[in-house]
Amino acid sequence: MAKVNPDFIKKVTASKQFNASECMNCGVCGAVCPMEIELLPRKLFRYALLGLEDKVLEHTPVIYQCLLCKMCEANCTADVHIAENVRFLRTYISKKVYQL
């Protein structure tokens, strides 16, 4: 069962970097991704916005598999800063999980 972490929601919504709420869920990002990562960003960013920290952390390898190449951003119709959002999640994991 999904568990909501209110602190995680606070961190995500307080961040000026994380603008995934602009996403219209059109799916272009997944279609053009050279890594064919379907999960990123649509589902993963939704998990983050909903405060489902466990779900986000479960997908840690995928978060680091992103090339940050911005092919998705170049095709995004909603101007979501996808690479910066991925970097935001990495920063969170670096601190929370890896203690870096």
């Binding site: 050279p34 890594m35 680091y64 598999q65 992103c66 090339l67 940050l68 190449c69 092919m71 170049a74 095709n75």
Partner: peptide, 22 residues
Amino acid sequence: RNLTHCCGGPIESLFPSMAHQI
């Protein structure tokens, strides 16, 4: 140009096999 295809290099230090496929 601005729709160039990534070489795979950015993930090479963490996922060498995947980078090689890209």
